[in-house]
C-alpha cells in the first residue's frame, strides 16, 4: 500500500521535498555564521542611522518630497536596511560561487545532477534570504522604530502583503543575479559584470534614495525597471501607498518581472548547457 502511494505521488512530492531541503540548507548555512550576522546587523543599523539623519535634513527642506512625509521617508530608510541583505540590494550573492564553479568546470557536475540548476540555486538563495530577513532584518528595523518616528502600519493584512512583496522582490533579485552568474560562461571572469550589477542594483533599487525622488523621466523609467521590485515596491506596500487594486497591480508588476527574468535565465541556461555539452565541460 505504502509503496504504491509513494510511487504515485513520487515525482511531484519528491521535487517539492528536494527543493525544500535545499532551501532549508541555505537557511541553515547562513544561520551558522553568527559573528557575521551580528556584524551585519551592526553595520545595517549604523548605516540606517546615517541615512535617516540625511533624510531628516532633506525632508526638513522639502516636506512631502517624492510623495512621502518625513515618517514615511524614514520608514523607507529602515526597510531599505532591513532588506539590504535578504534582497541583496548591493548585488552581492551566490552568483560569485556559481561563476567560480563555471570557471573551474565544476558546473558540469551540477548539470548532470538530477536537480535543475536554476531551481537548485533559487531554493538555496531564497533559503538564505529567509534567514537574513529574520537574522539581519528584524533588529535594524526595530532599532529604527525605537529611535525614530516611523509610519508603520497597524493592520496585520498590510504586513502580510509586505512579506509577499518582499518574497517576490527576493525572487526578482535572484533571477537577475542568476543571469549575472551565467554570464561567466561567456566572460573570462565575473568581476566586471558583478561590479556593474552592484552599481545598477544599488542605484535603481532605491537603496540610496527612493525612486520617487529621482528627477523626471529618469525616475519614471527607474520605477518601471525590475530593480524597483526589490525595495521600492515592498516599501510602498508597507507604507500603504497602494490600496485595493493598486496592491494587486504592484504585486503583479513584481510577479511579471520575476516570470520574465526567470524565463530569460532558463533560456540562457539551456544555451549555456549546450555549450558545456559541446565543449565537454
Amino acid at each position: 500500500m505504502r509503496g504504491i502511494g509513494a510511487l504515485r505521488d513520487a515525482p511531484a512530492m519528491q521535487t517539492v521535498r528536494l527543493y525544500g531541503l535545499v532551501a532549508a540548507g541555505g537557511f541553515r548555512r547562513f544561520s551558522t555564521y553568527r559573528a557575521a550576522t551580528a556584524a551585519g546587523v551592526f553595520t545595517n543599523t549604523v548605516f540606517g542611522f546615517i541615512l535617516a539623519y540625511t533624510f531628516v535634513a532633506l525632508w526638513h527642506e522639502r516636506p512631502q518630497l517624492g510623495g512621502y512625509d518625513q515618517a514615511q521617508a524614514l520608514t523607507f530608510v529602515w526597510v531599505g536596511q532591513a532588506l539590504l541583505a535578504p534582497a541583496a540590494l548591493l548585488g552581492f550573492g551566490f552568483q560569485e560561487e556559481l561563476q567560480e564553479r563555471i570557471r573551474s568546470g565544476d558546473v558540469a557536475v551540477d548539470l548532470y545532477r538530477p536537480a535543475d540548476l536554476q531551481l537548485w540555486w533559487c531554493a538555496h538563495d531564497l533559503g538564505r534570504a529567509a534567514f537574513q530577513l529574520l537574522g539581519r532584518g528584524v533588529v535594524p528595523m526595530a532599532v529604527g522604530a525605537l529611535a525614530f518616528e516611523l509610519a508603520l502600519p497597524a493592520a496585520a493584512g498590510t504586513w502580510l502583503l509586505f512579506l509577499l512583496a518582499v518574497a517576490l522582490g527576493c525572487l526578482v533579485s535572484f533571477a537577475i543575479r542568476y543571469l549575472v552568474g551565467l554570464a561567466a560562461f561567456w566572460l573570462l571572469d565575473g568581476q566586471g559584470i558583478n561590479l556593474l550589477n552592484s552599481l545598477v542594483a544599488m542605484l535603481l533599487s532605491g537603496t540610496l534614495l527612493p525612486l520617487t525622488v529621482f528627477p523626471g523621466a529618469f525616475g519614471d523609467i527607474a520605477q518601471a525597471l525590475p530593480w524597483a521590485a526589490m525595495l521600492q515596491v515592498p516599501a510602498d506596500v508597507l507604507l500603504g501607498r497602494h490600496t485595493g487594486a493598486g496592491v494587486a497591480g504592484a504585486l503583479a508588476f513584481q510577479a511579471a518581472w520575476a516570470v520574465a527574468l526567470l524565463a530569460a535565465g532558463r533560456a540562457l541556461q539551456s544555451v549555456a548547457t549546450r555549450r558545456v555539452v559541446v565543449q565537454g565541460g
Binding site: A35, A36, A38, A39, G40, F42, T43, V46, F47, I50
Partner: peptide
C-alpha cells in the same frame, strides 16, 4: 572574531558616508 569582517565597514564605509554630509 574571524568572520566579523563586516564590523569595520560601519566605521570605514559608514564613516565615509557620515562625513560626506
Amino acid at each position: 572574531a574571524t568572520d566579523a569582517a563586516e564590523v569595520q565597514n560601519s566605521f570605514t564605509y559608514g564613516g565615509n558616508t557620515l562625513t560626506q554630509y
